[in-house]
Amino acid sequence: MAELPESYFKYPLRRYGMDHDRYDWSLLVRRKPVSWPNNARIALWIVPALEFFPLDMPAKPFRAPGGMQLPYPDLRHFTLREYGNRVGVFRVMDVFDRHGIQRVSVAMNSKVAERTPYLVEQIKRRNWEVIAHGVDMGRLHYGGQAEAEEKALVTESITTLRNLTDQKVRGWFSPARSESANTPDLIAGAGIEYFCDWVNDDMPYAFRTKNGVITAMPHQHWLSDATIWFGYKQSGEDFIDQVQDHFDVLYDEAGKQGGRIFALTIHPWMSGQPHRIEFLERALAKIAHRKGIWQATGAEIFDCWKAQQ
C-alpha cells in the first residue's frame, strides 16, 4: 500500500472554533438563558412526519430509513409506509386530542400534500404548522448533487406546500436529514427561516448561508419512534423510559440554565400501528400534563427564541 501524502497529516483548519464557517462555536451552558411564555421550563414541540416512499424511489445516494428494500414492486414496504397516511395518523391525532396536544408542526413531503388533499384539509382544520420535508423520501439532498437539480427539489417542495396549505412555510426538514453543501443556501433563498437537520445542539442557534442567516432548531433524532423502534428495535417500554428520562434531564437543566426544547418526531407509519399506539400515548401522557410545559409549534418556539437574541 502506498504511503499517505504529507498533506494527509497537515491541518489547515486547526484553529479556534469550527472547521467551517457555517456557525460559531458556542457552549450551551454559557449562553444567555431563554424564557418561554408563563415561565415554562420546557417548550414541547411535537412533530408528526407525513412521508411518501415511492415504489420506484431512486435511493440515491442511499436509501432513506424506511425506504424500499425488495425488488420492484416492493409492495410490502410501500404499503407499510402508506399505512401511516391512511390509518396511523388518525390514531396519532386521537392521542393528541386526548392529551390536549393542539399546537403541532407537521413535517410533510410535498408529494403527500398532492396525493392526499384530505390530510391537507385535516391539517388546516387543526391549524397545524407545516414544515417542508422535501418532495418525497426517494428524492434526497446530498453532497455531489448538481445544484440545479437540488434547487428544483427545494422549489417544488416549498412552492407546492405553500400553494396547497396557504401557509408561509417557514421551516425545513430534509428527507433523512440529508443535505448537500448547498442545502442551507438554497432553502434560505426560498424564504425558509429555520431548519431542523443539524442535531448538534439542544437550543436554536444562528446558521450562516449565502442568502442570509437562518436558524438551526434542535430536533431530536436519537429519540424518536422511528429511531427507537425501527432503527434500534427496542421495546415499547424502552421508548417510554427514554421519553421520561429525556424530559427529566431537560426539566432539571431548565431550572438552572433557562428554557429548553423537547422536540419529538412521530412517524405515523411506526407509532400508528394498533400495537404501538399505546406506547406513544403512555409516553406523551407522562410529559404533556406536567407543570411548566409550553406546548408550541416550531415557528412559535423560533419566534420566542429569536425575540430574545
Partner: peptide, 12 residues
C-alpha cells in the same frame, strides 16, 4: 457513511 457533508454524523 454518507457523502460529505454527512450532516447527521458530524452534527451528532
Amino acid at each position: 457513511a454518507r457523502p460529505v457533508p454527512d450532516v447527521l454524523a458530524y452534527s451528532e
